[in-house]
C-alpha cells in the first residue's frame, strides 16, 4: 500500500465513523482507533490522538446543522458542559492515583447495564417525569421540528441534578479512560431527563467537541498528533458528520436508538476487554 492509498482508505473509514458518530452523539473512537492500530499497526498514542481529532470533527461537523435546525438543546448543553469540564479537570488531577484496569471493568459493566436497559425501553413511552425546579429556573424545556413524523415535538426536562452528576462522571472518565462522554450522557438525557432521543444525540454531539478540544491540545503539545494520519481522519470524519447531520432529522427515533445501543454494546465490550487483558 502507498501513502496515497492509505490516505484514501483512512478517509473512507473515517467517513463512516463520522456518519455514525454524528447520528448517535458519540465520537468515532470505537471505529478509528481499532482501524488504525489493528489494520495498520499505528502506535496507540498516535491512534488515540487521531481519535480525539475525530471527536472534535464529529462534533463541529454536525453541530452547525443541529444547532441551526434547533435539534440541539443549547441551554442544556451549556449547563451540562460546566459539570463535564469540572469532571475532566478532576480526572486530570486524580489520574495518577487510580487503577485503570479497575475503572475499565467498572465502566464495562456499567455500559453493559445501560445498553441492556436502553434496549428494553426502546420504543416505549417514558413514564410521567417528576417536576424539576432546576429545569424551570434554567429554562431548559424545549421543542424541535421532527422531520420524520412531520410535526413539532415539545418536551419537558426533568432530573437536572442527576444529569449534572452523570455529566461530571462523563468528564472524569473521558480524561481517565480516553472514552468520549457521549456514551454516558445520551442515556441519562434520554432515560432519566426525558428528552427525545434525537435531542439527546444532537445535544451530546454538541458537547463532546469542547471536552475533546482540551485533551487534543495536550496531545498536540506532546507531539502525538501526526499530520499524515490525523489529516485523512479529520477530512473523512468532517464530511461523514456533515452527511449524518442531514440524515438525523429524517430517521425514525427507534433507528437512532438501535444504532446507539449497538455502539454502546461495542464500547462496553472494548472496556471489558481492556479490563481483563
Amino acid at each position: 500500500m502507498t501513502p496515497a492509498e492509505f490516505t484514501l482508505v483512512i478517509a473512507a473509514i473515517s467517513f463512516l465513523a463520522g456518519l455514525l458518530g454524528s447520528l448517535v452523539g458519540v465520537g468515532g473512537g470505537i471505529i478509528v482507533v481499532p482501524a488504525l492500530t489493528l489494520l495498520f499497526g499505528v502506535r496507540i498514542q498516535t491512534a488515540v490522538a487521531a481519535s480525539i481529532i475525530s471527536v472534535i470533527a464529529t462534533s463541529s461537523g454536525a453541530a452547525a446543522v443541529y444547532v441551526r435546525d434547533r435539534i440541539t438543546n443549547l441551554r442544556l448543553a451549556m449547563v451540562l458542559e460546566v459539570a463535564t469540564a469540572a469532571g475532566a479537570l478532576s480526572g486530570a488531577v486524580v489520574a495518577a492515583y487510580v487503577s485503570g484496569r479497575f475503572l475499565f471493568l467498572l465502566f464495562g459493566v456499567l455500559l453493559s447495564y445501560t445498553a441492556w436497559s436502553m434496549s428494553r425501553r426502546a420504543g416505549t413511552r417514558t413514564a410521567a417525569l417528576p417536576p424539576d425546579p432546576w429545569a424551570d429556573r434554567l429554562k431548559l424545556h424545549g421543542s424541535f421540528y421532527d422531520r420524520a413524523v412531520g410535526e413539532t415535538v415539545s418536551y419537558r426536562v426533568s432530573r437536572t441534578p442527576l444529569g449534572l452528576a452523570v455529566s461530571y462522571v462523563a468528564g472524569l472518565v473521558s480524561g481517565l479512560l480516553g472514552i468520549g462522554g457521549g456514551v454516558l450522557k445520551v442515556p441519562v438525557m434520554n432515560l432519566a431527563m426525558g428528552l427525545p432521543i434525537k435531542v439527546c444525540t444532537a445535544t451530546s454531539n454538541f458537547m463532546i467537541g469542547v471536552t475533546a478540544a482540551a485533551s487534543a491540545a495536550v496531545y498536540f503539545m506532546r507531539g502525538d498528533v501526526q499530520p499524515f494520519i490525523a489529516a485523512p481522519v479529520a477530512v473523512g470524519v468532517l464530511l461523514g458528520a456533515k452527511s449524518g447531520s442531514r440524515l438525523l432529522g429524517r430517521l425514525k427515533n427507534h433507528v437512532i436508538k438501535v444504532a446507539f445501543v449497538i455502539v454502546l454494546a461495542i464500547s462496553a465490550l472494548q472496556m471489558l476487554w481492556k479490563g481483563v487483558r
Binding site: 500500500m1 502507498t2 501513502p3 496515497a4 492509498e5 492509505f6 490516505t7 495498520f40 499497526g41 499505528v42 502506535r43 498536540f220 503539545m221 506532546r222 507531539g223 502525538d224 498528533v225 501526526q226 499530520p227 499524515f228 494520519i229
Partner: peptide, 24 residues
C-alpha cells in the same frame, strides 16, 4: 514528503513507524 505520484510502500512504512515526536 509523502512521495510524488502517491509514493511507495516504503514511504508508507516510514510514515507509520515514525517514532519521533512531530515537530511543533
Amino acid at each position: 514528503t509523502y512521495g510524488v505520484r502517491g509514493g511507495s510502500p516504503a514511504d508508507l512504512h516510514r510514515f507509520l513507524t515514525a517514532g519521533a515526536a512531530f515537530p511543533r
